[in-house]
Design a protein around this nucleic acid. Structure first.
Lengths: 300, 300
DNA sequence: GCAGAGCGATGCATTTTATTCATCACTATG
DNA sequence: CATAGTGATGAATAAAATGCATCGCTCTGC
């Protein structure tokens, strides 16, 4: 939409904090960009940016305006996709912010399945920890969020939650491998490979351990679940992951859920920005996810 | 806002149904207007208007787009007024759609009272019957609606309702003048001056009469309550109006509520468009109205 | 303390975009 | 079957946005 291109320039300026730098990123001259800002401030009768020695920063009025521009831009996208939809084109885009566990198996399959019906719909998938996911929704960087144990819910509207017990991942010949479930105490007898603090799995494990009056002493810490789970197959090391992030079967490795008396099952949240009307494509994809969860997972 | 001026042109074209006529109304050449439309359709990849032999008409895509433009325009107004507000200017505008009864006494006083605190806020007041009021909200022609016995509620969000019994208005020396309340049957002994069908008062009277197995045979019908109430002071004619539309005292004329067993009290609805965030000025004015109703009227 | 780098603002020439004017093709109307 | 009204379009013109060069300012690093 050409009319609101100049407005989206503001978003870039606000993000970068400098008119000159933003102009470079936007492939126009600083002069032109500066003039747009001045003209807009003139039009509004109030400044939008504070002028600092090393750049600019949004003031309160600017925050309001930027928020409105973001909303308006994605609303226009939605209208466009609706119009394209009734022209029979069935194109569109779905932007997703999600926790790591969805990346290796679940989302790729879901997207593949969706594409059989809607081949012209494109996707963007952003890895966001449980704090950054809501921010992505607020900034309209994502239409949908799929987050394990999110921290905030202020602007978050939950479509569906899915119960996901934390599982211990270990070699198939590990002493604990045969059990239906394992106690946290049993795991502590072995070297542990744990994700870092921002992850929901770590949060659940740490808080459960604290409640049981103990502490987890990880041998290995990493921000990569791929790495951690690979460790879980080596020697007697135990890693942790939720089922949706694990393959159905992997040779030489097994996963055993933690006893729910020690570590309660976490919740995976599917949701979008509160009070927002989703674009058709995103709404349909959310429907598909919800259907899948209802059919194949322990939802509530 | 210069960027969305071209978009609001579309609203005028849709309303008038002709590019040339709309161009005249907008004080630009038909050619320029036509090009804007063509460019927009090009940009959207789908037509917005059906081309008819005698003009144009919105198609489904166009309806979607126009609705979005309306919303966007009034959202932008809201943001502007918020920005002006925090710049300390306290200006703004309140657009009201209301039933006739609010016009002669209630609203003028309320606006006067509001102006003592906010002298820079301007008002527009549109007389709309109970059907047209909701349409005015949907089309963002009005921020607030104040309607007696509205017919539809689909897009209407009620802030407050006020009970208003229908009153018989007659000369002070009328045979029925001294009573606490009057029965409908008593009124039917005298010549009646009734409003026309679209009005809530007429609706209440007609449906009550039907329920009582009778019919009202008006001597005088009019769309002007001013005229009807004036008739109510002449000879033994009885007119009808709700209290909020009547003066506290008028020499030679009295009003007596109809017995609620015959005609139940009607409801006056204060509300706005569902899912809409009101501009600051409108929200504050609605607050004032609500406070007045709670303090001085029979609300529920 | 002082030169230099980086910032936003601004006057002027240039380019791009939008508007106007004149005209075409089409279609109901009388 | 002529006429008046419609939207579309090409070329000339007017308006707006952009690019370029430069100013004044403030902080940084020597």
């Amino acid at each position: 939409m050409p009319q609101l291109k100049p407005l989206t320039y503001l978003i870039e300026v606000a993000r970068i904090g400098s008119i000159r730098k933003a102009a470079e990123a936007l492939a126009i001259t600083p002069s032109a960009l500066n003039r747009r800002i001045l003209a807009l401030e003139e039009e509004l009768g109030a400044p939008i940016f504070e002028r600092l020695p090393r750049g600019v920063r949004l003031n309160t009025a600017g925050e309001l305006l930027i928020h409105h521009i973001r909303t308006q831009a994605s609303d226009m996208d939605r209208v466009r996709s609706q119009i394209a939809d009734l022209a029979g084109v069935r194109r569109g885009h779905v932007a997703i912010a999600c926790s790591q566990a969805l990346l290796p198996y679940f989302l790729p399959r879901q997207i593949q399945q969706y594409r059989t019906d809607h081949p012209a719909v494109s996707f963007s998938v952003h890895l966001r920890d449980r704090e950054a996911a809501e921010r992505a929704l607020v900034e309209h960087e994502a239409d949908l969020a799929l987050v394990f144990e999110p921290t905030r819910f202020a602007d978050f509207h939950t479509i569906l939650t899915v119960r996901q017990p934390v599982c211990a991942v270990m070699a198939a010949d590990h002493p604990l491998a045969g059990q239906e479930s394992v106690r946290l105490r049993e795991c502590q007898q072995f070297p542990l490979a744990l994700p870092l603090a921002p992850y929901g799995v770590r949060y659940l494990l740490d808080s459960s351990a604290a409640r049981l009056g103990t502490r987890l002493e990880p041998l290995i810490q990493s921000d990569s679940f791929e790495f951690l789970v690979a460790c879980g197959g080596a020697a007697d090391i135990i890693a942790f992951q939720i089922p949706i992030g694990l393959p159905e079967q992997s040779p030489g490795r097994v996963s055993v859920p933690l006893d729910s008396r020690d570590v309660p099952p976490g919740l995976l949240y599917l949701g979008h920005l509160r009070d927002r009307t989703l674009p058709v494509a995103a709404a349909r994809f959310a429907d598909q996810l919800a259907t899948t969860f209802v059919a194949a997972y322990d939802y509530n």
